[in-house]
Design a binder for these strands. Structure first.
Lengths: 117, 117
DNA sequence: CAAAGACATTAGCTTACGCTTATATAAGCG
DNA sequence: CGCTTATATAAGCGTAAGCTAATGTCTTTG
């Protein structure tokens, strides 16, 4: 059973980030625009593999491509990153709230101890 | 060919985040500790599935489990989140740098235009 | 001690992923 | 117009993901 439409965008963003080759591509693009061939050169995977990765990254909103003659220079896009950041912020908030709850619990236990002393 | 040892920790963190069921689990845990059974109840997947997801999340450093009799209450862990945050911060930095480079380029073009006017 | 409850583990299945090779398309160049 | 370069697309393959059903292992409880 697979979602036929609108597979949550977060799926594609995090899935895109889960692959080391794609992270290498993104890290390279963080240093500036690059074409498919330029990206493929240091990567030890074939050019078609890079094309496929880029297609996926574009779909996830993490990369944009423009047309320059025969080349398709790629650059980072903030869209996917923003989605990831936002969701992770929610997690972080929960994490902090859990710490607060723990503090509250410990305080309550101290209070009880005080009472039973 | 698969990495035999030390599959980059980021792989496991982002892969963990890529699955909607696991994100649902994490979102639930953001609201506080929960046992396997409690997690499974609203999820429409079987208990073994949840156990497997939790195992993976623990492996990725996103969840911690403690032992309480027969139960294994889970809570969020900051380790995995920290790793993800750190890497994404790098990306964001690159994104901003790209904007600056773009600004610089546009300025240079303006200057050239000035010169050729 | 027996029964029930919470969880882990195993096996098997289906589907998606990542890669390569082979081939197509399309722009730039002599 | 042929030739080369840059990229896309397609087919095929091996592996891993995610799930379920079945079963095992401990605790707790009556």
């Amino acid at each position: 059973m697979s979602l036929l439409f609108a597979p949550d965008k977060l799926d594609s963003v995090f899935a895109a980030l889960a692959d080391p080759t794609r992270r290498a591509i993104l890290a390279r693009l963080a240093r500036g625009e690059a074409t498919i061939t330029e990206l493929a050169k240091p990567l030890r995977v074939s050019q078609p593999a890079v094309s496929q990765h880029i297609k996926l990254l574009v779909g996830a909103g993490m990369v944009r491509q423009r047309v320059d003659g025969v080349r398709r220079p790629c650059r980072l896009s903030s869209e996917g990153l923003g989605a990831a950041d936002q969701w992770l912020a929610m997690l972080r908030k929960g994490l902090e709230a859990n710490y607060e709850r723990l503090d509250a619990l410990l305080s309550a236990m101290d209070a009880t101890e005080e009472g039973t002393r």
